[in-house]
Amino acid sequence: MTWFSRVGWRHLVALLAVAFSLFPILFVVSAALNPVGTLSSTELVPTGASLTNFGELFSRTAFGRWFVNSLLIAGVSAAAAVFLSALAAYAFSRMRFTGRRVGLLALLLVQMFPQFLAIVAIFLIFTTVTDLWPGIGFNTPWGLLLLYLGTALGVNTWLMKGFFDTVPRELDESATMDGATHAQIFFRIMLPLVSPILAVTGLLAFIGTINEFLIANVFLTDTGSKTLSVGMWGLVAGERNNNFGIFCAGTLLTAVPTVLVFQYLQRYIVSGLTSGAVKG
């Protein structure tokens, strides 16, 4: 076999994909560094290097607050979602009980309801909640967090269940023989073995939450309680062309936590199974 058919094509595919991935991002970087800050004056390759847009972002808006709010909501809800769906996936993968098949199917179907059309219902439900418990009502991160946990099962559980199924049953059977309880099997044996999928679903949940716009837009109306997506939407809802530079600066900063989370989790994604106990 030639070098190209073994390795070379892989680099070619990857390079083309990287180019496709990067050119819009390069455009955003160029717009963020563009001192004029308008759409019409922005080109693909940066024409200037000025931090004016970043400065204005912090001086003219409550960007810092939005950033903290988003990190809190996305971080906590991603962690909780991973834990909740890992519990459910363990049950679906390792136990046999009545309603297992129906439960799996129901999970898949219920999340297909176009949730944003249920926004009216969510709004009315949380109007009552705000009256009763203002601490978890509108304009609080906790209410939004609870709402996001409603979608924690669903697709995550499916992804994890598929992964749990690939871990040999012999491992937990022998642990049962040695006297381990089901909880010990879950925490000591299963969770370490499936850490790659925990990392992947955690990342997906984090990104999904930080990008969520529609519900958050209804939920958070006070300037101080907004998340990044809601706050930045306000930047370009009115004036598009003039705020484009500031908007792109905000877009870049919004991407920073996601990139960091990915970097942090990548070790688990890559090392994961290959070094785990499955091989022996």
Binding site: S21, L22, P24, I25, V28, I207, I210, N211, F213, L228, S229, M232, W233, F247, G250, T251, T254, A255, T258, V259, F262
Partner: peptide, 9 residues
């Protein structure tokens, strides 16, 4: 990277 960028933006 495209996935890390905020999609609505």
């Amino acid at each position: 990277l495209p996935y890390a960028m905020p999609s609505f933006a």
